[in-house]
């Protein structure tokens, strides 16, 4: 196989990672949703390319599912939620954008540092894809913990899951059943999150989770 093909695979995987970093920097909910959609489309391209170079037609099904569900259905649904709830304003961040970006870069460095010396097992594609994938997972987690807004936390979670799919398709021989079940669990999680967000909104007139925490029954007064 020409080495160009590997480079293209790296390009797509790297694209997913870069979009994760872009996602981390967004301070508007609508922009974050758009970046997430873009990331999902890039992921679909990456998986489709993997299907081609691994000659695994079943991976195409995964790519199509990622494209349809995460590239279009979920972002559109999120946009609808945001319009309905009227929360397309700035998102409050726990720590500032610059600091978050620095932390994100450090995480990417860490994941490459971790997986670079691993040699022998697997081919080169799998190898570097997994480093990217771990970076995407860590960035998704970082996004979840640095936002107060429930919708952006959902996006962080979804982006984390994109990293898992990237890792799974990079290695050879991932059964389709596992991917389908992962996709379904994401769908269920999305529904649960959606219901949850609506309930928060109905009850407290906001989707800022700090408000929610104030209403926890067992919370002890700090004294």
């Amino acid at each position: 196989m020409p080495s160009l093909w590997f480079d293209i695979a790296h390009l797509f995987a790297g694209g997913v990672l870069v979009l994760s970093l872009v996602l981390l920097y967004q301070d508007r909910v609508t922009a974050a949703i758009n970046v997430f959609a873009l990331q999902a489309i890039t992921l679909a391209l990456s998986v489709g390319w993997q299907a081609f170079i691994q000659s695994e037609p079943l991976l195409l099904v995964t790519a199509l599912m990622a494209l349809a569900v995460k590239g279009f259905v979920i972002p559109m649904a999120l946009h609808r939620i945001v319009r309905r709830l009227d929360v397309h304003r700035e998102v409050e961040q726990v720590i500032g954008g610059g600091a978050t970006m620095l932390a994100g870069l450090a995480l990417v460095a860490l994941s490459i540092l971790l997986l670079q010396p691993v040699s022998g097992a697997g081919d080169v594609v799998a190898h570097e894809d997994i480093a990217f994938a771990l970076g995407v997972v860590l960035l998704g987690l970082l996004m979840m913990i640095t936002r107060y807004n429930a919708v952006t936390q959902v996006i962080g979670f979804m982006s984390l899951e994109n990293g898992l799919i990237l890792a799974a398709t990079g290695a050879r021989g991932m059964p389709l059943v596992v991917e389908i079940s992962v996709a379904f669990s994401i769908l269920i999680a999305f529904i649960v999150f959606g219901v949850f967000v609506f309930r928060i909104r109905e009850r407290f007139d906001t989707v800022d989770v700090t408000v929610l925490e104030r209403f926890r029954g067992e919370r002890r007064e700090q004294g």
């Binding site: 987690l141 989770v209 926890r216």
Partner: peptide, 13 residues
């Protein structure tokens, strides 16, 4: 026992 969900996530992270 009385941390927020985000704090628990941070701890896991």
């Amino acid at each position: 026992q009385f941390l927020t969900v985000r704090s628990y996530l941070t701890l896991v992270f």
